[in-house]
């Protein structure tokens, strides 16, 4: 199996899907000649031509609204918004149309599109280039919201998203883009959307995270094993909406203790929904208050202070130890 970065893996997914389905179209700013500012769409123009790999004018609502029309016709557009911080210029197209066309037309017209966009901090970027606002999309009925965490699941989930009959917002953790390589099977692989994954098994604590925060979360889990001799269970949510609460609710029933990690702001963040589902499904099994390690409810600072804003392995470790030490 070749070892790939997440950028390579996403690029492979796009090549493979475009190869086998001529209804897949890629469009966005700088996606064709430049291959995307992160090079995720590199080589697609040469392979598939300018009718299918489209450099659009610089207009986010235009990109998303055009994708909606293409999808209604029966194409499978994969549009890129260069940074998720600019996706709000297309917010209304997603909320008012992409999410509702199936509902509004009672199933006659559907919008099988994917909106790919990099999110997450930690790359020393300008303002608007580091935030995590997955809650906006997860809160919108009719949309699906997927966030991969590794090259392998990124490739498999992007293929699933392209084939999904409904609109999928696909957040790519840019801090992971080239952070490490992972073996990615050469043969086609899809992962189900709407399914979380237990990535590390344990008995004493459940740690729930996703996207770029999976790395510090797993680092904290390693330290707990090495330094404290504690085996924690780690769950990668992978799909924020529709949220798979069964996987983490079952885990919480086993461990009785839960810690949630995300870099999005805390209030009304995905963690709040996860806590609510846990209370509904696993309340009688809980032995300690559920803790959240998250971004703060502020604008993510420019990069001089972003390290203090983003959950780190140490912060997660301290919260985990507090949760473990709380008497039942």
């Amino acid at each position: 199996m070749p070892k790939m970065t997440m950028v390579d893996a996403l690029n492979t997914a796009l090549h493979q899907e475009m190869e086998q389905d001529d209804s897949v179209i890629v469009l966005g700013e700088d996606v064709a000649v430049d291959g995307g500012v992160f090079r995720v769409t590199e080589g697609l123009l040469d392979a598939f031509g300018e009718q299918r790999v489209i450099d659009t004018p610089l207009a986010e609502a235009g990109i998303v609204g055009t994708s909606i029309g293409m999808a209604i016709y029966g194409l499978r557009p994969v549009c890129e918004i260069q940074f998720s911080g600019f996706s709000y210029l297309a917010f209304h197209q997603l909320e008012s149309h992409a999410a509702r066309m199936r509902w509004r037309s009672r199933g006659a017209y559907t919008v099988p599109m994917v909106l790919r966009t990099p999110y997450s901090g930690g790359v020393r970027a300008l303002e608007h280039h580091s935030e995590s606002r997955e809650a906006y999309w997860a809160h919108t009925p009719g949309l699906k919201m997927v966030i991969p965490s590794t090259p392998r699941n990124a490739r498999a989930l992007l293929i699933s998203a392209i084939r999904d009959p409904d609109p999928v917002i696909f957040y790519e953790p840019k801090a992971v883009y080239r952070a490490f390589r992972e073996e990615v099977p050469e043969e086609e692989e899809t992962w189900p959307i709407g399914k979380a994954q237990v990535v590390r098994e344990g008995e004493q604590l459940t740690m729930i995270s996703y996207g770029a925060m999976m790395r510090p979360t797993l680092e904290a889990a390693d330290k707990l094993a090495q330094e404290d001799g504690v085996e924690v269970e780690v769950i990668d949510v992978l799909t924020i909406a529709p949220l798979d609460h069964e996987t983490f609710s079952e885990s919480a029933k086993k461990t009785g203790r839960v810690l949630i990690v995300h870099e999005a702001p805390r209030s009304f963040g995905p963690g709040a929904e996860i806590v609510a589902r846990l209370v509904e499904n696993s309340f009688w099994y809980l032995e300690a208050p559920i803790r959240r390690v998250t971004g703060y409810d502020v604008v993510i600072p420019l990069f001089a202070y972003e390290k203090a804003y983003l959950p780190s392995a140490d912060r997660i470790l301290r919260a985990a130890r507090e949760t473990l030490e709380t008497p039942a």
Binding site: V64, G65, T66, I68, G69, A71, I72, Y73, G74, P77
Partner: peptide
């Protein structure tokens, strides 16, 4: 915009 997407298709 939806008309533009449809007509592109």
């Amino acid at each position: 915009l939806h008309a533009v997407g449809l007509s592109y298709a």
